[in-house]
Structure formats: C-alpha cells, structure tokens
Amino acid sequence: MTFYAFTGALEQGLVYGLMALGVFITFRVLDFPDLTVDGSLPLGAAVSSICITSGVDPWLSLLPAMAAGFLAGAVTGALTAKLKILHLLSSILTMTALYSINIRIMGGRPNIALINQPSVFEPFRALAAALGLNVWLSSSLLFLVMAAAVTTAIIWLLRTEFGQALLATGDNPKMITSLGVDTQFTIIIGVGLSNALVALSGALVAQNQGAADVTMGVGTIVAGLASIVVGETIFGSRRIVGRVVSVVMGSVIYRLAIALALSLEYFQPSDLNFVTASLVVLALVMPKIKALAQKRRGVAHA
C-alpha cells in the first residue's frame, strides 16, 4: 500500500466515521435500520455545495447541510412513528424521494463541481504547510478533530436523560413508554440527529473530493454497518464510551482494510461493494459462530 493510499484510507475512515456514528445512533441505539442515509449523504453534499457555489462560507454551509439531513431523518422517523409504516420501508421511501430532491437542490444537475471553490480545508492546508507536514495529512487532521468532537458529543448525549431515553427506546419501547417517554418523539429526533451527522459527513466528503454527486450515497448504509460491526468485533466494548469510540476506529480500520484489499492485484475498485458486503456478513455471523464453537467445546468437556 502506498503512502497516498494509506492517507487516503485514513482520511476516508475519519470522514465517513461521522457517517458511521450517525448510523450507530439509528442501528444500535434506536434499533432502527435506516436506509435514509444513502440519500442524506448526497443531500448534505448537495446543500453544502450549492451554498458554497452561491458564495456562502464553507464552514457555514455545513449548518444548512446538517439541518437538511435532520429534516430527512425526521421525515423517515415520522413515517414510521406517526404513520406506522415499517421502519425499513419508511427509510427506503425517503431515500428514493431524496434522489429527486438532491437533483433539484443542485439546480437540476446530477452533480456540482467544487474545483477552485473555497473549502473548510484551506486553513488546515496552510497550517500543514507551515508545520512542514505533508499536505495530504491536512484533511485527515481536520477530520480527526471533527470525529473526536462528534464522538465526545455523542458520548455526552447518550449519558444525559434524553440520551438514556433514546437508548431505552431502542431496547424496550413498551417499558420506556410506561415510564413516560413519548417514543414517537425520541424516534423522530433520534433518526433526525443520525441523518444530520450523515449529511455533515457528505458535505465534508464533497468539499474534500471537490464535487457533489447524486450517486455518491450508494452503499452508505453498508459501509456504516461495516464500520460498526468491525469496531464491535475487534473491540467488543459494552460501555457507552467504548462503543462510540469503536465506531470511528471501526470506520478507519474498515477503510484501511478496503485499501489493502484493493492494493492486491487481483481486485479492481468496483469489487469494493462485494468485499464490503462479505465483510459485514462475516462480522454479523461471527458472534454466532463463536457461540456455537463454545457450545461444542462445552459438550466435548462434559
């Protein structure tokens, strides 16, 4: 693996780590499989890009991007909680609608180029240059700071009364309703927050790669799940801090693994989705295989 491939993987692991944290909130905290993310990632990219090309400060453009993501997630949450549509289906419906909406946002085009536009990376590139660091590391540096900040914020949130209610909504909605929590509200806010993070991730990806594209969200959910299960399989933490941190770690390791796989001669870049899907399946059945093996061993001893 070249240095370029390594820094690229690190960078992607951290920026998509924000997306994985979003997926963690739905998939693990709320127990809500949410495919909206495939649409809210390009949504964030589209909103941020259109803001930047109309002269908005790139940092400032992240706010409407996140707001749009929150709204998309809230729609999915409301379809499920209020209209009682199956969660998976609700999210597919939102995702499908977002395809059209994203193209509308980008002024009827499927993509927007951000070449020669200001981005959030400029000061960091200058900083890296001043420190004599490789300029390729500057994006990673920024993403590291952001991933750390978002991780901290999520850990804080999950420890608050509201965060505990979110966790309980995912674990046992019947129980937490009987204790006075409106689970419709927690689901709508929770899925909204999740997609706000995914949209933030999308906005940063677009600024980093210099373009927003309506198809850039394909496979987002699978990559997010892969990051989560890789993190869980490797670190296996049960406490909140460990669980949240291992999502970002999982994202970085996942991207490095992908980079490694693609650096082998046999694979070509389009094999990425197959490799990822296989990885997720493997990680998901791993606990069952472990349990089975333990059982066998137990029987043998007896």
Binding site: L157, L158, R159, T160, E161, F162, G163, Q164, A165, A168, I176, L179, G180, V181
Partner: peptide, 14 residues
C-alpha cells in the same frame, strides 16, 4: 429511567 417517570427528560445527567 424509572426515577424520572412522568418528568421531562432534558440534558442533565441520566
């Protein structure tokens, strides 16, 4: 969670 039954849940410690 039970100790806060019927109370608003905000951003104080859980």
């Amino acid at each position: 969670l039970a100790f806060r039954r019927g109370r608003r849940r905000g951003f104080r410690r859980g």
